[in-house]
Each structure stands twice: as C-alpha cells, then as structure tokens.
Design a protein around this nucleic acid. Structure first.
Lengths: 225, 225
DNA sequence: TCAAAAGTGTTAACTTTACACCCATGA
DNA sequence: TCATGGGTGTAAAGTTAACACTTTTGA
C-alpha cells in the first residue's frame, strides 16, 4: 500500500447578525494559492488536536472571533479541490455575536471582514460551495433547533428575534402568531427590564433558558417554527 | 510547521431491511488492532479517489455489497480514536436491498454478517458511537426524505412500507392515515400487478417515482411523515 | 399630539388523529 | 368456510393562519 498523502484541514463558516443583516466572516489570503483572494477562515489540523480545537485555534489566530456555537457541517473531499495537492477539509458552522469582540487579521490573513450574505465576493478553493451549504444548513436548522438565540444578545427584545427569523427565512412572519408559538415553547424567560430603541414603546427583554430547553427536549418536546 | 501525520479513512454503516427487521452489515477484523472483533466496514482513502469512491471501493472489497443509497454522516476525529495513531474517519450511511446480492468476506475482513440493530456485538474503535449516530440519522431522515424506498424492493406492497416505518420509528402506525398521507404525497405509482403473500388478499404493488419526487421537491412540496 | 415600535385575541381553514368493518384470496 | 392480510371513510380534536387595533414611549 502506498503512503497516504492526504492533508486534513478545517474551515469555519462564521455567521453574525446585526440589525436585520446576516453576515459571514471572511479573510483575505496572505499567501498563495489564491493570494489576495477572499476565503473562509481555516487551516490544517495539528497532529494532536481535535477537529473542534483546530477550528477554534485557526479562528482565533486568523480573526480574533469568539465562537458562541459551533457545529460540524460537512466534509469536502473532492480530489481537485486544492491546487496544492490532496486536501480534505472538515467544514464547520459557527455562530457569534459580533458586538462582543473586535476582529483583527493575523497569521495567514491580511484582512478580515464581515460580508452580508447576499453581497459575497469571489471565493477561493471550493469555498463558495461550502458557504452555500452552510447557509442552507443555518436556514434549515433555525426552524427545528433553537440556535437563533446564539446570534442575538443574551437579553433581547422579542422584535429582534422576529426580525432575525424574517431575515433568515426570507419571508415575513406574523408577529402575533410567532410570539404565541415561541412563548408557547416555554424556553424564554421574560425579564423585568425594558429597553427602548430611540422612539416607540419600550420592549420587554427576554432571555433564552437553555437549561429548560434541554429539560424539555429530554421529555420529547421539540422546538419547531 | 511540523509535518501533518493524520491519516484519513472512511467507514460505512450499511443498513438493510428484510421482513420487519433492520440490520447492519459488520465485518470481523482480520488484522490488529481489534483483530477478531466486529467493526463497521471501511478503510483508508487513496490519494486520488474521492471519499465516496473510497467508501464504495472498501465496501466492495470487504463485503461485496451493492450500495443503493449513500450519504455522508459525520466526521469523527477524536485524537485517541485509533490506537495506531491519529486517524480521522469520514463516516457514511448506506442503504441496500440485501436480497439483490450475496455478501462475502475479503481483504481485511475474515467474516461479514448482518446484525439486527438491537442485537449488536461489541465493536472496535469508536464504531459504537458511529453506529448510534447512523441509527439516529436514519430514524430522523425517513420522516422528511423518501429514503425508506431504498430499503425495499423496487416494487413493493404498501404493507411493506408500513412495516418498515413501524419498525424504524419503533411505534405503531395507523394504516389508514399512513396510506392517506403517503399516497397524498403523490410520489408512488400504483401498478396493475398484485402479489400475494401466502394467505390473505393479494396486495397491489407500488413503485416510488423518483422523477416525480424531484419535480415536486423543486416546486417546494416537501415529503414529511 | 404625533410618530414609532410593542403588545395583544378571535375566528376560519386546515391538518391530524382516532377508529371498525368489508374484501379478496388460499388453504 | 375460515383464516389471513388488504383496502377503505368519517368525524372530532387540534393546529395553523389570517387579521387590526390599542399601548407606551420619545420627540
């Protein structure tokens, strides 16, 4: 048997949400191949680190993000996907709260930038395919797992959640029905605090109760929009 | 940067269904590590083959199965999952019709055998974890994608489908409601043929119309049980 | 007092569930 | 003619969808 010459990398599609806009974090590549082109952050896995550790390390190194939620997306292994040779990459989806940290470019990245998901630049490797797979996963997943909260502040007005879902699903949502449904799931705690956004009636703040969610999930109650 | 010493393998959890029983195909390992123990079929990816090709090749080599449906499951990359060193494996789920081929053991396998999924032997590596992930995927997926048909004969009596779902979901199904629902999805062609199983009224045969399914899927109609 | 965003219920349409008897065949 | 599995409809319960006005605040 010939020696295996496959290298393994990880890549992370990191989504952030702010004010009705979903963005993806991309880096500009400092080195060849695809020098000067945009790419999903990622890199080679070290011999003694888990895949998740590798993702977090690469993200930290290249961009400075603080990952809030991370899940494996898919493994891309086409023979010709990397001009340097055979590189198989395990792609992840990450969710972050962009307002809780400052991004910076470092190591392999000459720039880091948030891109609105409907104004993406040309990407390196097969990263467009990966990105589209990730967007599809995110859109599908928010309808059956409570991951939307990972994109919002810990305490948020209900309208933020509604707007997030409107944006991600790409269609309007009936406010009354949505509120009824979500509150009926019993995983949000309503706080006493209120917050006002410029003008208009101040909104009550809510907080996702993960503990209660896991409890309910164990009992077979499912989250579904 | 130190040289990467990670090897990449693929593994396939192959499910078959016959007469109310879901089985998994396992091999008995011919060589160390875990020599003589049961394992999911799989092996190392060659430098110039895609992951899917690798799965199909390994399955063919070790067991002789004819894969009917194959989908990527998850990539398992724990540092300590293989005693030989760092091996990351991309696991797949395969569905087959066991009555359409003959299994045989070859290359790394000293035996190949179908195991009912609730009478599994002790497994090598982290294969138990992989297998459980695969079972969960199969159970979840048959409720929102028409993959159950891949386990049945091309032409099947409705009761076979019903029994398959009963088995996989692990709960009884109302015959009338199930029939209404499935036929309402409009993806089954009713044939003129009938088949009789020993005694009782002969059943009409049905056939899954994949073309129509893809058509309907494109139009946004979703398969759901 | 006006503009802006938050909050709130009811009804009709639709979907899901529960349920039992007759039919066609082979032994 | 009996045993066996196949085939069929209806009504009640539950869920989803449609819809508009009042409240609270800041300017």
């Amino acid at each position: 048997m010939v020696e295996q010459k496959i290298r393994l990398s990880v890549d992370a599609v990191v989504f952030g949400y702010e004010e009705g806009v979903i963005s993806v974090l991309l880096i500009k590549r400092k080195y060849d191949p695809f020098k000067g082109k945009w790419a999903i952050p990622g890199g080679f896995v070290l011999n003694n680190e888990s895949l998740e550790t590798a993702v977090e390390r690469e993200l930290q190194e290249e961009t400075g993000v603080k990952i809030n939620y991370l899940e494996q997306l898919y493994t891309f292994g086409d023979v010709e996907r990397d001009p340097r040779g055979r590189v198989v990459t395990v792609a992840y989806v990450g969710l972050v709260r962009p307002n809780t940290f400052k991004i910076f470019a470092s190591t392999d990245a000459s720039q880091v930038q948030w891109f609105t998901i409907d104004k993406l630049p040309e990407l390196s490797f097969d990263h467009q395919k990966i990105l589209h797979t990730a967007i599809a996963r995110l859109q599908a997943k928010i309808t059956y797992e409570p991951i939307g909260f990972e994109l919002l502040d810990k305490k948020f007005p209900f309208s933020d959640l509604e707007k997030l879902y409107t944006t991600l699903l790409g269609r309007p949502i009936d406010r009354r029905n949505f509120r009824k449904k979500i509150l009926g799931l019993n995983v949000l705690d309503e706080l006493d605090k209120k917050v006002s956004k410029g003008s208009g009636r101040p909104a009550n703040l809510f907080q996702f109760n993960q503990k209660r969610y896991f409890q309910l999930k164990k009992e077979g109650i499912i989250f579904e929009i």
